[in-house]
Design a protein around this nucleic acid. Sequence first.
DNA 1: CTGTTAGCGCTTTCAT
DNA 2: ATGAAAGCGCTAACAG
Lengths: 339, 339
Amino acid sequence: MSRSKMADVARAAGVSKMTVSRALREGSVIAPATRQRILAVVERLGYAPEEAARNLSSRRSGFVAALVPSLNNPQFAETVRALTETVEGSGLQVLIGHTNYEAAREERLVGEFLRRRPEALVVTVDGHSAATRRMLAAADVPVVEMWDWPTRPVRHVVGFSNKDAARDLTRHLIERGYRRIAFVGETESDGTRGAKRRDGYAAAIRRSGLGPPRIHNHAPPPISMLQGRDALREVLRQWPDVDAVMCVSDPCAFGVLTQAQAQGIDVPGRLAVAGFGDFEVSRCCLPALTTVVVDAAEIGRRAGLLVASLRGRGNEGAVRKQELIRIPVRVEPRGSTGG
Amino acid sequence: MSRSKMADVARAAGVSKMTVSRALREGSVIAPATRQRILAVVERLGYAPEEAARNLSSRRSGFVAALVPSLNNPQFAETVRALTETVEGSGLQVLIGHTNYEAAREERLVGEFLRRRPEALVVTVDGHSAATRRMLAAADVPVVEMWDWPTRPVRHVVGFSNKDAARDLTRHLIERGYRRIAFVGETESDGTRGAKRRDGYAAAIRRSGLGPPRIHNHAPPPISMLQGRDALREVLRQWPDVDAVMCVSDPCAFGVLTQAQAQGIDVPGRLAVAGFGDFEVSRCCLPALTTVVVDAAEIGRRAGLLVASLRGRGNEGAVRKQELIRIPVRVEPRGSTGG
DNA sequence: CTGTTAGCGCTTTCAT
DNA sequence: ATGAAAGCGCTAACAG
């Protein structure tokens, strides 16, 4: 027995296919009694509409495509969760892709996702390739960039300035009296968020006349906790007099903190440590890590609301508009910088 | 100018639609010269095939649906990553959903995903509702259950026994000389993986004649690091003489460890701590946490290989088969239990 | 409120 | 190696 289709339901209910279609669609005009009868038949036959046919006919996929660097990152996971739960109220499903922080992989995925005719494309700002930028600009679906504040946005933005946030964090360290501040970052430098944070650090150091920035580019992103431990060893070797280490992200900072403790270096007494992102581990560990608090869920939620508002009748007009949504972030001083 | 379709490409290249279709499909018979010419036109027009039409016509969606409890869990994220990267070689895309550990949400998502006609459905064993079980059993696509070893599998399985692993971990604690071992778990009990781990603990305690199990069901899953800190306070209040705490998962264990250190309780001297899952934090922290090592990527990879092998011409036969793939896990003793 | 007619853009199937 | 015809299962657009 093959899977039943709309015509089978129509026959069994004694109506036309079109009436069945209407019975299954929320806001359509149909007699309540007819709908009841049809839904009963649907239930009995175990009928489920074929999305592909629906999509082809209606020219809407019901998809939103979202690209993040990694799923294995609590921040992006939280953004994706919030995005998903926000748009599913509008009957949309999120197609998630991960770039592994690789521009080439991102390029391929953008192409594949575009074939699925998503109703919107949400991407994480992280140094797109030229081809990716071209595809995004040419795409006939709304594009939302998130997690940074691009200098030249493709269309919509939901983000914050990683550079400014890192600069503020550096200033916090300086205000607390630290003077020989090192930065542990990633080797990538092509418009990635990590590079922006490094730039913010370097700008603050230079403007404060603290001499040349002490930058240790440890590895390609993402830098893990265990790599953070290695990184501190190298920083201490290169700048034995360092009194503070600022990290490109919280996992890295946790590694640095742990390595300091393993070597009997008092934090924050002899060494301050700061991270970026407000991962749970930073709030839980001893001492708690000073970090930049980013509301990852809010980014996903705002992106979702934007996407949801972009579809529907007003579509044609809405697609032309450009929304730039700034998500507030803040430095949160905690024990690791002498709080 | 509207987006070009296959007929436009065919016209521009002076061939039929069918020939264009063949040019775009890997293993189809077509003159190399013709293909070259067509691909050039495709490039020039920026043509991209409409997946929905392809799906409808060919009756294959190119999708694999995967359901995990949470994306914000490094283990599931890693499984999803490996699954995705394994199947994308076969031209499949993974549609990811998260249940938030809620059976009702899972039920809804299984229904929605099934409408997309995925070529396989991969679900995490975590106490399905009766309706979910029914849908899975009735689904005309291969179903893979992962991350546990169900007593009555729906079809394919890629997993391990959470209960046996927890029992082994408990025995490890007993062998190390701990006698007053508490378990910090989740409040859910309906076939979840957390419940299986608790059962494994309880079985080992009973069999060793160590008196009644000391179970503290702290909160619904997932238990966070910060909740782990709370949990230790409550465990110490209830059983002041406890000498070991075994946790349902690593984040919880890290919280317990941190809280012990915050209270000046020596780990492992006065209190042992153990987790489950081998999250990175457990390997990085001081002392490192004894845990059950689960190769999350291997689960995703094996599930992906299984899914990829299930499609294609041999399909009809293959669908009837049942593969039960056991993923080896092991207790890894580390500093937190006196290693 | 319900039905009829025409496709949506591709692939299948069969010719040639 | 290529083409022509016939749908895939649904919804848009109009009629009644």
